[in-house]
Design a protein around this nucleic acid. Structure first.
Lengths: 204, 204
DNA sequence: GTCTATAGCGGGATAGAC
DNA sequence: GTCTATCCCGCTATAGAC
């Protein structure tokens, strides 16, 4: 009872660092204990098992990513072009500030799509969010301000353009090395460029 | 010497299946031996180590992906719109026919970007390929047929739109379940839709 | 070439003293 | 609450008989 609050926080902090950097399988309880300056027995005392600790870290990462977006999409008064601009800039800025998260979430999703997919569904409400976006899109298409495109297709394109470059960044670094001036220019202006790219494509 | 040819092929076949499905870390030599109907000692006899076997499988996967694209990009006579249409349709069809490859390559690249990036560079010639594409793009921009866009940005967008949906497919399945009619429609028409989406965005 | 047995390590988890 | 010592498992790799 002495300073358990601090120990618990130390553990979460260490677990976050290790899981984000190495992923579930390659981050070990020994790593996490060392990072938190405690021993393995303490880890199990406070958080029972590796799986339990992992899902705490995974859930907070996914939630932090999702909650930014859901507010924008379900906003009643914002027009769809503004939503697209905000979503892309929020995503890109978030990944810039949290560069380990896209690799972490994607890596775990690839490793175990069933479990991770269920986890994601329990955190978000995909059907509701999607329907809101779909309705708004279809109204714009009827008005003639947007070319016909399926909602799912557009959502996939937006996610692709925001998430993939963040995943690929560490690999791109290996390719660009010296030439990273060009890389930096792209990254800095990407927040606006991606939205322009999407809106140019869909607006009539 | 009896039937070593067959054994070697059996091992490669089994290793491909296991590595593609589970990735480097979670595919074990035991798995691979069982899949090939031999014992672990034989695995080491023919292929020395897990790392050695892994890179054989990784290299063939990456090469199969890359060689389709390099031919299109470096073609001297094809116009850039046609190249974009061919690249996207080749990618999407390839991932449809080889659904484990995008997860496999992406998973390994996330797990170990330095090693995997170097491996990729040794297989492809990124600078040459990129310069060819960049020159052709800049000529079109000067002619006024394409809006100003940086080559790196456009390449990133094309790769994102082709690769990310293939990575995300197993997770999307968890979300769509019953609704997979809509999913299938998207996937089937995606070969054309992605090219349209890109070209709509860049052409003047 | 093929197989059994095992070395040697590193993993998650826990018993039990304090 | 904390820590040391240890259990037990699964992994890669190899020794050595056939």
């Amino acid at each position: 009872m002495k300073k358990s609050r601090n120990v618990e926080e130390e553990i979460i902090h260490a677990a976050r660092k290790m899981f984000h950097e190495k992923g579930y399988k390659e981050a070990t309880m020994r790593d996490i204990a060392a990072e938190a300056n405690i021993n393995m027995a303490m880890l199990h005392y406070y958080y029972r098992s590796k799986d339990n600790l992992f899902f705490i870290i995974f859930d907070e990462a996914f939630r932090s990513l999702y909650e930014k977006i859901i507010k924008i999409i379900t906003d009643q008064y914002m027009d769809i072009f503004q939503k697209i601009r905000l979503i892309t800039s929020e995503y890109i800025r978030f990944f810039d500030n949290n560069p380990t998260i896209p690799q972490f979430i994607t890596g775990e999703a690839i490793r175990n799509p069933e479990i991770i997919g269920k986890r994601m569904k329990s955190i978000m409400d995909p059907v509701f969010t999607y329907e809101v976006f779909k309705d708004q899109l279809q109204k714009e298409i009827q008005k003639g301000t947007i070319r016909p495109i399926s909602a799912l297709s557009l959502v996939l394109n937006i996610l692709s353009l925001c998430i993939f470059p963040a995943i690929a960044k560490p690999i791109l670094k290996e390719f660009i090395d010296d030439n990273l001036t060009e890389m930096n220019i792209i990254i800095e202006s990407r927040e606006k460029d991606v939205a322009d790219f999407i809106i140019n494509s869909i607006k009539t």
